[in-house]
C-alpha cells in the first residue's frame, strides 16, 4: 500500500516559530532528524520518495481553457499557509504503519528541541486494478 504523507506550511499545533527564527543548533537537529527518518525508512524498504518543495515565493498558479493564453498568478499569496511544503511517499504493509510514520514525522524536533506537532496529511495512493479481478 502506498501512502503520501503531506506537509503544508500551515499552522503547527505547538507554538513553534518559523524555522528561520530558531537557533542554528535547533535547525541542525531538525535536519538530522529528517535525514535519519528517511534513512531508517529506506533501510526498512518503505521509502519510495521524499522531497521538499521550493518556497511559496516561487509558486505560480496556472489556469487555462486550452484555447487562449493561460492565466498565470504569481505570489505573494494570502493563503500561502495552505501550500504544500514537502512530502514522503511510502510503501507500507498497512494503513496503521503509515499513520505510525506520520506520527514520527509530526513529532520532529523544533524550537528548543520540542516536538513541532506539525499536522501530516496521510493519503492513500490509488492503485491499479487487482489483476485477479
Amino acid at each position: 500500500m502506498r501512502f503520501m504523507l503531506l506537509q503544508n506550511y500551515g499552522q503547527v499545533e505547538s507554538d513553534c516559530a518559523p524555522m528561520s527564527e530558531w537557533s542554528p543548533e535547533d535547525i541542525k537537529a531538525h535536519i538530522e532528524f529528517q535525514q535519519a527518518l528517511n534513512a531508517e525508512l529506506a533501510e526498512l524498504g518503505e521509502l519510495v520518495d521524499a522531497q521538499g518543495l521550493a518556497g511559496p515565493e516561487l509558486a505560480k498558479f496556472v489556469v487555462s481553457d486550452g484555447i487562449g493564453a493561460p492565466v498565470i498568478t504569481d505570489g505573494p499569496y494570502p493563503e500561502a499557509k495552505e501550500l504544500l511544503a514537502g512530502y514522503r511517499l511510502v510503501d507500507v504493509e498497512s494503513a496503521e504503519r503509515a499513520i505510525e510514520i506520520a506520527a514520527r514525522a509530526s513529532a520532529a524536533p523544533g524550537q528548543n528541541g520540542l516536538p513541532i506537532r506539525q499536522p501530516i496529511e496521510v493519503r492513500e495512493v490509488l492503485s491499479a486494478p487487482d489483476p485477479e479481478l
Binding site: 524555522m19 528561520s20 530558531w22 537557533s23 521550493a54 518556497g55 516561487l58
Partner: peptide
Amino acid sequence: EFRAAAARTTNLREQQYLTTQAARLAA
C-alpha cells in the same frame, strides 16, 4: 536578506545553509 534568499533557492543544501545563517545572526 538571508531569509529572502532561503525562501527563493531551489537547492536543499543551500536552503539549509541560508536558513542557518539567518538563525546564527538572529541568535
